[in-house]
Amino acid sequence: MDIAADLILAGALAVAWLAAGLVADALPGARTARDLRRRAGHLTWLVAAGAAVFVAVPLVTWVIPGVSNAPAAALLPAVPALIVLTLGVRRLGQVRRGAGAFATAPHTPAPPALRAAAAHPLILVPMQVTGLAALVGLPIAAGLVEIPGADVAGIAITVVGAAVVAIGVRAAVRHSRLSLLALAPIGRSRPRVPVSR
């Protein structure tokens, strides 16, 4: 198998998951319930496309004879992709169904609780980490980095680890801020109990 086929597979994987990460990042910014549902639907399709590329990698390398670096490149983003497929998709479905409850009034502003649910770190972080790991897999697919034992691989893992921490902290802060906005009306609407003297 030649390097071009490996790069096409690894590139398709990176494009699908980077696009999913970008859409997931914009998901809590939806202003209306219809927009939130539409974005959640697009994100679901992007995750399905990314999962389909994961399935295509071993099939294509099995059909085309020769040595391939694509499976090694796809191995790096496989772990965060499993987290997306087991936990993130379920949360994304909850957001989509919640936004779908406003189908009769599509211009209703997105409720703060739904926006907070859309910003949950289990939706955002694994998708962005999968895209980043797929991007790091491109030099592996091109044959520029040999696995295992490459010094470049150690540097790449360190950089990806630091990026994962930064993405996780950013997602947790944003989710916390949106959660507080969802709870703020509850705190203000407490009835005052008259004090008897």
Score class of each variant (00 low, 15 high):
residue 53 V to M: 05
residue 66 G to P: 15
residue 142 A to P: 12
residue 77 P to N: 14
residue 73 A to F: 08
residue 188 R to E: 02
residue 103 A to R: 15
residue 131 G to H: 03
residue 140 I to T: 08
residue 66 G to A: 10
residue 80 P to M: 06
residue 156 A to S: 12
residue 27 L to F: 05
residue 28 P to L: 00
residue 47 V to Y: 05
residue 26 A to V: 05
residue 54 F to E: 06
residue 92 L to G: 06
residue 122 L to A: 14
residue 86 T to E: 00
residue 110 A to K: 04
residue 35 D to N: 15
residue 99 A to I: 04
residue 123 I to W: 01
residue 116 A to G: 11
residue 177 R to L: 09
residue 33 A to D: 03
residue 90 R to Q: 08
residue 162 A to R: 10
residue 72 A to D: 10
residue 38 R to I: 10
residue 67 V to E: 13
residue 10 A to C: 11
residue 63 V to L: 15
residue 13 L to D: 02
residue 113 A to V: 11
residue 1 M to E: 09
residue 105 A to D: 13
residue 191 P to K: 00
residue 145 V to N: 07
residue 170 R to F: 04
residue 56 A to I: 04
residue 38 R to D: 12
residue 5 A to G: 13
residue 137 G to H: 05
residue 37 R to P: 02
residue 17 W to E: 04
residue 93 G to E: 09
residue 41 G to C: 13
residue 163 A to P: 12
residue 73 A to H: 07
residue 54 F to H: 13
residue 135 L to Y: 01
residue 172 A to V: 05
residue 29 G to Y: 00
residue 172 A to P: 05
residue 179 S to I: 05
residue 95 V to L: 10
residue 86 T to R: 07
residue 69 N to I: 07
residue 183 L to P: 03
residue 79 V to E: 03
residue 113 A to G: 08
residue 187 G to H: 00
residue 136 V to Y: 07
residue 108 T to G: 03
residue 164 V to F: 12
residue 20 A to E: 02
residue 144 L to N: 06
residue 174 R to V: 04
residue 55 V to K: 01
residue 4 A to K: 15
residue 3 I to G: 00
residue 127 M to K: 12
residue 181 L to V: 03
residue 140 I to M: 07
residue 80 P to K: 07
residue 129 V to K: 01
residue 72 A to K: 15
residue 69 N to Y: 05
residue 14 A to W: 06
residue 99 A to S: 04
residue 130 T to E: 00
residue 55 V to P: 06
residue 152 V to K: 12
residue 108 T to H: 14
residue 49 A to I: 09
residue 156 A to F: 10
residue 39 R to C: 02
residue 9 L to T: 03
residue 74 A to C: 10
residue 98 G to Y: 05
residue 168 G to Y: 05
residue 164 V to Q: 13
residue 170 R to T: 15
residue 37 R to G: 08
residue 58 P to N: 07
residue 6 D to Q: 06
residue 128 Q to L: 04
residue 45 W to D: 03
residue 133 A to P: 14
residue 132 L to F: 04
residue 143 G to V: 09
residue 127 M to Y: 10
residue 83 I to N: 09
residue 46 L to Y: 06
residue 20 A to K: 09
residue 44 T to E: 02
residue 158 T to W: 13
residue 109 P to T: 01
residue 39 R to E: 06
residue 37 R to E: 00
residue 166 A to C: 06
residue 132 L to E: 01
residue 14 A to I: 03
residue 35 D to M: 12
residue 135 L to G: 03
residue 157 I to D: 05
residue 175 H to E: 00
residue 70 A to H: 13
residue 26 A to T: 07
residue 111 P to Q: 04
residue 1 M to P: 09
residue 19 A to Q: 14
residue 167 I to P: 09
residue 7 L to V: 03
residue 82 L to P: 11
residue 7 L to N: 00
residue 143 G to I: 13
residue 165 V to E: 12
residue 81 A to F: 07
residue 165 V to F: 12
residue 127 M to S: 01
residue 166 A to V: 08
residue 23 V to N: 07
residue 27 L to I: 14
residue 128 Q to H: 01
residue 102 F to T: 00
residue 127 M to Q: 11
residue 125 V to T: 03
residue 166 A to P: 06
residue 172 A to T: 10
residue 31 R to G: 09
residue 53 V to S: 01
residue 177 R to A: 12
residue 149 G to S: 10
residue 130 T to A: 08
residue 123 I to Y: 12
residue 111 P to F: 04
